[in-house]
Design a protein around this nucleic acid. Structure first.
Lengths: 292, 292
DNA sequence: CTATTTGATAACCCATAGTTATTAATCAAT
DNA sequence: ATTGATTAATAACTATGGGTTATCAAATAG
């Protein structure tokens, strides 16, 4: 039977591979179970490989099926993005670029980038999403993201990294706090305060750096609260629940009842880096590359 | 009409995009022209993009179509390879790895690699093809090759390179030539001879190095013949048509009427490098990586 | 031992890929 | 202009095969 493999087969295969249950997969696909069974069987015949082990009571993937699932996930992602890009290009757009970023990057580097790119390529569309370091790395690896703005010491193989901004750290205090620029000499002056920090799973490098800043001055901070949003942290500081240490550039763009005091004489820097995949196939990336 | 895009559409689209002629494309696909026309039209409707400009006398791709063609070429290549790998895994094989190499790599590094990998993973299949530096780089870029063994100073972005073997150069002479190991001091002793070299388009770095070896000794070689095959070069030397300079390791594995004299006191080295793409998706590559 | 769950089989139906026949437009050559 | 050749689109038809319902057979649970 000289059948031909089609995307339909792949779609059905993935549904069964995920559900590991023919009827549930069929429901999800809005087709009948026998129809699904036949298509899967046909697919196995076409490529000549048993993909599922049916134990009459349990369905599981073979090793080959496992491999195929992983690749087909990637292939579908690529096809979807390609069609999306094709539509954008057709509409006269220069395409879309998908950017992930830490909140702090929104204060400095990202707005600059958007403005510069927009001047040159007014038809490039941006898809911006705030997300953690970890999720950005994952997004880049899975080709679901073109650029990421992270604070990381190193990234997995296959991902490129380049520093785009080096920032100092600032102490964040309630507006009515007794410390001022003139009488602020040393971070140890707040060693007895409670600290509010970014969660370590949002950015573990950040977390470690804050710890080392304090340790260098001879104390371990009492961490009372953690959050993933700068705004939340500021609100907590404003409410008198503690103090915080954050990258200095975060003081712009918010209108809150806190004050920033740049921490003098410390070696730690808040480095922001872009990450990307070397052989990203999004043509937009080449265009905007020189703006980084 | 809630149609669904299928690989069939992609196949047909690529045929028309290549032929730029509906009837010819239809012939190639062994279907009728109206059938093809309708499928293309349907595809355009599904993704909502005009892919071809039909001037009633000439068919051409739109910008969006051009982009789509490039990506679909890549996607089909990926799908084909994935299915091939799936079949191999199913057969108990650990998959296939596609290696390109310069002839000279077959003397040293490649046989070693094959033996070592085979000990550990007896089910990994090798696809070996001798090809020029240039074609290897192209193969790597298009994901049609997993590893390349080249002699290059640098490679395009997105491709990784690592030196695996550093070799000296040897002078190749007919067996009855008056120069012997004892009376061979300097390459200038053959400055009046004709030279037979590898073609510069087979390996331009090699070509440049040979030239610089001679220039360092104060002469420009008279190049009388060029070839892409070591065997041919040796045959020409044997026939008395000239002398050659090649990487020393080439002396093993051939049984020819020529003799090798290692060239003393020169700075030039014949460096052989592996090249690969960082995010190659062939799982076999990871496995054999440590053997390099 | 019965009830239930689940995938495979069998037989049928109809949507649609592909067919043939024809038309309409464009161009080249007289 | 007229004719002829090329080429894609349209129209009408055909039949393959994807999807359906009904049913079975094996495997577990209670």
């Amino acid at each position: 039977m000289g059948y031909q493999i089609e995307l339909r087969h792949f779609t059905y295969f993935l549904a069964v591979a995920e559900e590991l249950h023919f009827r549930k997969a069929a429901d999800r696909l809005f087709i009948s179970q026998p129809g699904l069974s036949r298509q899967i069987k046909q697919m196995e015949e076409i490529i000549g490989v048993t993909l599922f082990i049916r134990n009459k009571r349990k369905v599981s993937l073979t090793v080959a099926g496992e491999y195929l699932k992983k690749e087909l996930d990637y292939i579908f992602n690529h096809i979807d993005f390609t069609i999306k890009q094709t539509r954008l290009i057709d509409k006269g757009s220069d395409g879309e670029i998908r950017i992930g970023f830490l909140g702090s990057a929104m204060q400095t580097i990202i707005p600059e980038l958007l403005i510069k790119v927009n001047e040159q390529y007014s038809n490039v569309q941006f898809s911006l999403e705030e997300m953690s370091n970890h999720l950005q790395v994952e997004g880049i690896e899975k080709d679901q993201l073109d650029l990421g703005f992270v604070r990381l010491a190193r990234v997995p193989k296959g991902i490129q990294m380049k520093t785009v901004h080096v920032d100092t750290f600032s102490l964040v205090l309630p507006k009515n706090h007794y410390l001022e620029e003139k009488n602020f000499k040393n971070i140890a002056q707040v060693s007895d305060q409670h600290f509010i920090l970014f969660s370590s799973d949002y950015s573990s490098l950040y977390y470690d750096k804050i710890m080392s800043i304090c340790e260098d001055k001879g104390f371990t901070p009492k961490v009372s609260h953690k959050s993933v949003h700068a705004q939340t942290i500021f609100k907590l500081v404003e409410s008198g629940l503690g103090v915080a240490i954050v990258p200095t550039s975060l003081q712009y763009g918010f209108d809150l009842g806190v004050k920033f005091l740049e921490i003098p004489k410390i070696s730690q820097k808040a480095t922001l880096s872009v990450i990307w995949k070397q052989d990203n196939r999004n043509p937009v990336l080449e265009k905007i590359w020189r703006f980084l």
